[in-house]
């Protein structure tokens, strides 16, 4: 099937099989390999991306469903600078080890900060509770998100 969508600001037209989910499409058709697959059944959060402004599980959306939609991935958010401060906080706090969960984690964290500028640690933990990280034990991630929220609040 032919689909046309916007990915990281660029218009993309492609011929995809209906069964191809959005992250396979991004990874295999567009070679945007920053979005990862950890379970492909919607539990681990590694495939978290933004579709039409909201975070979604990329493995639980078909590419054909995104026809006409606006997709943003970790590559797009990196290039635009939207989450540069959050990324810097993750690096400074070593809030990633193997880094496999990180793109999805950053997507979820930024989603929280857009909706709740001053989250408590509990709210941060709750919001990222659908994103599995095997390495860090989460505390460094919570710290990095909290730090970014405070920095943004001060910059306001």
């Amino acid at each position: 099937m032919n689909i046309t969508l916007t990915v990281n600001g660029e218009t993309v037209t492609a011929d995809v099989l209906p069964r191809t989910h959005l992250v396979d499409f991004l990874r295999e058709h567009l070679e945007l390999t920053g979005s990862h697959l950890g379970c492909e059944h919607g539990v681990c959060g590694a495939c978290t991306i933004r579709l039409d402004g909201a975070i979604v599980r990329g493995c639980l959306v078909l590419a054909v469903q995104a026809d006409g939609g606006v997709v943003e991935t970790i590559e797009g958010l990196s290039d635009s600078g939207e989450i540069a401060d959050l990324q810097a906080a993750f690096i400074a706090r070593n809030a990633l080890q193997c880094g496999f969960c990180t793109p999805g984690m950053l997507m979820a964290a930024q989603d929280l900060l857009l909706h709740n500028a001053t989250p408590t640690r509990e709210e941060i933990r709750e919001h990222i509770s659908g994103n599995y990280c095997r390495c860090t034990g989460y505390q460094a991630i919570v710290d990095a998100v909290e730090t970014t929220a405070k920095q943004r609040a001060r910059a306001q």
Binding site: L32, T33, G34, S35, H36, T73, I74, E75, S78, Q87, F90, I91, A92, N94, L96, G99, F100, T102, P103, L106
Partner: peptide
């Protein structure tokens, strides 16, 4: 000190 490989991984530019 920060790890040299983290910027790449936070930008989705790792190679797994």
């Amino acid at each position: 000190v920060p790890r040299p490989n983290l910027a790449r991984l936070t930008e989705g530019r790792g190679l797994y």
